[in-house]
Amino acid sequence: MGDTLETLKSDLFAAPFCEGLEDTHLEVLLACAHEERMPKGRFLFHEGAAADYFYIIVSGRVGLELNCPNRGGLSIQTCDAGDVVGSSWLIPPCIWRFDARVLEECRLVSMDAAVLREHCKADPTFGYAMVERIAQVKAERLDAARLQLLDLYGNPEEGRHVARTRID
């Protein structure tokens, strides 16, 4: 049991999400954390469900997907070791905006977001630290989405004549 707690502690505290947090805040996070393993193909959450938890990936890969009629789940982003999966837990109405599916077997630190929200309300300093970190996650994803929208690697000639020959 002791080893498990130590592993959880070291996995959680090593995550970029925890970088720069005060010791008391780290203890709050640790009290809301537990470790999980998820096999490939398992969904961590589904769009529209209550965002009462979130994850920090220790190892493995998770895909964020939007389900599209007739096209299935469309992957829009992947998250890897060190990444936070789920940022809707702090932003009302606290509902997941995407599906999250395990693409490679994962070891995760699962966080009880419902309890963390209560801590945020009770301790504004802790609340601000959480908002700062989730804002960082959102900002990185917004930057990435903007770059993806620019289609930087697209061929300006696309749609016009392009030779189609065997690819080797």
Partner: peptide, 15 residues
């Protein structure tokens, strides 16, 4: 930038 069916690698920007 854009995944496709069967792609299990990373999706996102190089940054």
């Amino acid at each position: 930038d854009r995944g496709e069916r069967g792609w299990n690698g990373e999706i996102g920007v190089v940054t």
